[in-house]
Computed example of a mutant assay.
Amino acid sequence: MSDRPDSPCIGICSTLFDEICQGCGRTAAEVSNWVFFSDEEKQAVWERITREGTARRFRQG
């Protein structure tokens, strides 16, 4: 595996009114079900949010 954390969460959550969390880039369903995901499912989410690169987690500065 890689040296990245298990969860993409950076503690800046905004899924209350948005379908996509502005902090980590996951959907509300992905956030709430993360602990139940397999390693493969987590990897797929990490790949997608990294590719999209729109969440605060991936912004510089």
Rank of each mutant, 00 (worst) to 15 (best):
A28M: 13
E47H: 06
G25M: 05
I49S: 00
F36N: 08
G25R: 06
G61E: 11
D39S: 03
E41K: 05
E30H: 03
S32H: 11
T50N: 04
P5D: 06
C13T: 12
I12E: 03
T15F: 09
V35Y: 01
K42L: 00
M1F: 07
S14V: 11
Q60N: 14
T54M: 02
Q43H: 01
R59M: 10
T54H: 12
S2T: 14
N33D: 05
Q60I: 14
S38H: 04
W46V: 06
W34L: 05
S38P: 03
E52H: 10
T27I: 09
T50G: 01
M1T: 04
E40Y: 04
E41H: 03
D6A: 11
A28R: 15
A55E: 02
E40D: 11
L16V: 12
T15Y: 08
C9N: 09
E41W: 05
S2W: 06
T54Y: 02
G25D: 03
T15G: 13
I10C: 07
F36Y: 04
C24E: 07
K42H: 05
E19I: 03
D39P: 02
S38K: 01
Q43N: 04
C24K: 01
E30A: 02
T50M: 01
E19T: 08
S14T: 12
Q22T: 12
W34S: 05
R56E: 08
P5F: 02
G61R: 14
L16D: 13
I49L: 01
D18F: 13
A28E: 15
L16P: 07
E41R: 00
M1W: 05
S2Q: 13
A44C: 08
R59C: 06
E47L: 08
P8C: 13
I49G: 01
F37G: 01
I20K: 15
V31S: 07
G11W: 01
I49E: 03
V31C: 15
R59D: 03
I49V: 13
P8I: 15
C21R: 06
F58V: 09
P8W: 14
C9S: 15
L16E: 14
A44N: 14
G61Y: 06
S7L: 09
R56V: 11
T27D: 08
I20S: 13
E19F: 07
V45A: 04
I12F: 04
R59E: 07
N33Q: 11
S7A: 14
Q60R: 13
C24P: 02
E30F: 06
S7T: 15
E40Q: 10
D18L: 14
I12P: 00
P5V: 01
E40F: 10
R4I: 08
